[in-house]
Nucleic acid binder design. Sequence first.
DNA 1: CTGAAAGCGCTTACAG
DNA 2: CTGAAAGCGCTTACAG
Lengths: 342, 342
Amino acid sequence: MANKATSIDIAYRAGVSQSTVSRALRDSPLVSEETKERIKAIARELNYKVDKNASNLRTQNSHTLALLLCEDPTNDDSLINPFFLSMLGSITRATAKQGYDLLISFQQLSSDWHADYEDSNKADGIILLGYGDFVDYEHKLERLLSQNTHFVIWGAEHNKSSVASVACDNQQGGLIATEHLISLGRREFAFLGDASSHSPEFRDRYLGHVRALKNAGLAVDKRRQVDAISTENAGFEAANMLIRKGAHFDAIFAASDLIAVGAIRALKEAGLRVPEDVAVVGYDDIPVASFANPPLTTIKQNTQLAGEMLVESLLKLIRGEKVPPKLIPTSLVVRKSCGIDL
Amino acid sequence: MANKATSIDIAYRAGVSQSTVSRALRDSPLVSEETKERIKAIARELNYKVDKNASNLRTQNSHTLALLLCEDPTNDDSLINPFFLSMLGSITRATAKQGYDLLISFQQLSSDWHADYEDSNKADGIILLGYGDFVDYEHKLERLLSQNTHFVIWGAEHNKSSVASVACDNQQGGLIATEHLISLGRREFAFLGDASSHSPEFRDRYLGHVRALKNAGLAVDKRRQVDAISTENAGFEAANMLIRKGAHFDAIFAASDLIAVGAIRALKEAGLRVPEDVAVVGYDDIPVASFANPPLTTIKQNTQLAGEMLVESLLKLIRGEKVPPKLIPTSLVVRKSCGIDL
DNA sequence: CTGAAAGCGCTTACAG
DNA sequence: CTGAAAGCGCTTACAG
């Protein structure tokens, strides 16, 4: 590889000082238009690009954000939660739009976080996506907080108000999903998904679900809530358990689409028809949802907006501004699994 | 944020020179064990991390790779080709395993590439994923080549042997998919997907498909090949066109799973049963494939291996080694859409 | 508007 | 085994 051109090379050719080159390329008003043009032309000709390591070292910021994607321990090695992938797309776009680069890292949940991007000046801040067990997660957040790292988390509002967060309104999602089923005449509900504080997002969906039931004067039967992590298999097992217990239900609200798809499989195998016997609603609107059989009614999170807000909040934090937690409303996507005639 | 500790701070506390600190932290054999321990302990205590900008500037390499994901212009804005996402996962992992960071960027195909990661010393090399139109793509590759950028491409073998590439064996994939259908008694084949030089991967799948037909002494009917880009809609349209033309066929080999899923929808709407009347095989094994109705028989690419090889090839290139193009064998995933009784 | 100079925080020859 | 010093390529006060 030919030696890269430096600002000194350009200065030499342009017959100016290196400082002037640096100013010209950064469009400083201190340089005359004429000189600027000459310098820029030479820079283009030499295919010159400012050395980021040098400029970052000098200015002490990296113009780079880091995205830490924590994988669910439950997914197989090569599979990423499809919902996160959708977020990844919007985060990448939002980061680029702001003129930042994005460093990405997948972390095993088990392992200790390698979250020293900011300490090593590789990134100005960190976006955290996914956590596995929320209780463990909080300890890690504590450490980031104590190290004054700039970071913003996706998913659940943290009880420490000092943690910046962006989340979709999971309670509202659970509410509208359940209200929809109620409006279609369903009365006996099952909820599939962990409803404990270990999974605050699922728990909030559950809380919204319960609120809708209460608003409608319907019974909340704890025996029809079955824990499940977000996999097709867990959904299958959870629905099977309900069926084996002989539980009565005419609707299932699943805390995620994968759970819903697994549940549908279990229902079918048990000879139950979806949606005639049991209506099913999922959560996330992953691509699989529209191809499920029947196509899955689900709650869609606005990942586009979410990505933008995560990036925006993080940049504000870096600039030293305050950022209140953000809550994004969700929307209902009606397909056939809820029993409506499309 | 408290001022970050530097190697000088540590030197001061340890009562040694800054050079010794630097050596100790890099585990240089020139430093006594005892001194090393002392220095490392202080570094931990101060939460010290080597400043990457400074060290990269000094050593003139970034220990970072860049991933350029070029989106298909055909996908809607927030949706990424699910196959690429699976690659992304394995590339991220492989990069981390080698101790490198990964910078990621989504490029619009229309826009001019912003591929100056290496020129600005932000990355030591680039992995290119996706391209849209291959003919346009090649011009861009020319430029990278002329700038002596280190890069490796995924997908098709480039006719310039100087371009490092990793690809799955698309011809072999097309061959085994078609052979499988033939072994199940299918005789009249349609192929859905662009078979021109604008989509070399699809074309190779088509070539393998044709080879299998010829090997079996079956007719190759050009009228049963319909161009389609890799979307569900394009597959739907392509299959509809075949049906409207009154083409006879008892099997469809689709160049991608999305095309296959769209084709199945068209077949069903036309009152054709899958697989009884028409068997369908796709390509990629995206998550949707197993949830399609009927579940889709498809060709699986080993994304895990592919990601590792891309990273490995790129690192070799950076080290100045030669890298021959790599071809990874594919495998058949049999589900119900091909007509086998599972 | 321009230049000379300092300095960001490291790594690494050079000298001991 | 250790230290003093140079230098990676920028940005930006300071002086003119």
